[in-house]
Amino acid sequence: MPIALLLPATLGLLFLILPLAGLVIRAPWSTLPQRLTEPGVLTALRLSLQCATLATLLCLVLGVPLAWLLARVQFTGRRFVRALVTVPLVLPPVVGGVALLLVFGRNGLVGSWLDDTFGFTLPFTTTGVVVAEAFVAMPFLIIAVEGALRGADTRYEEAAATLGAGRWTTFTHVTLPLVAPGIAAGAVLCWARALGEFGATITFAGNYPGTTQTMPLAVYLALENDLDAAIVLSLILLVVSVAILAALRDRWIGST
């Protein structure tokens, strides 16, 4: 193995795992059990997992067709649309939250209509958390799925078409199975990003225990006066998410 690769690879790995080691070393292990059973912790954890999962489902429903559109359909301005899709990636999440408020807020373009027509507002609701997380996480899914679609061999789709399959049948029976690993990878990225979401969530959905206070928000507030609690919360979020991802990886992609 060339040293020119090994050295930066090792440095890169250290750079990624050292902060994690810092958390583990600094964790207040003696008081860990009683901190774990504090009711607020489980509430925030459950809310985090629920919202991230719902956001991922929303991203799948909207993002996979959008990725297909970008990968398979020629239309003018496609490059521009592709660039637009990545906007939530570059936008600081807090700015994303403000932007969401301007559209879906009580006085927002869509939000005021929702409020007038249905008496329903998104900010400060659990649905609002899902919306904020989906906004920030969707590009991860779209980019992964689009990449998989563009890499997939279109001859399978063409073959299906020549055998009489309609576009919808081709999509569901040929295209989707073909890019399933890409969709799975994208969904995992999307879920992980949604789980860690902080800025857009606190800006758009606010922070209230049981309704909108996800783990990252709880960690941030714990940091204000209790570093140990913040470390414990971070570790819980980390362990749970890594465990879930590892389990899913085995099931979906097969252990490698």
């Binding site: 606010g206 922070n207 209230y208 909108t212 206070q213 928000l217 507030l221 204000e224």
Partner: peptide
């Protein structure tokens, strides 16, 4: 409806 993380929020 919300407990903000700082006064500016």
């Amino acid at each position: 409806v919300t407990l903000e993380q700082d006064v500016k929020g």
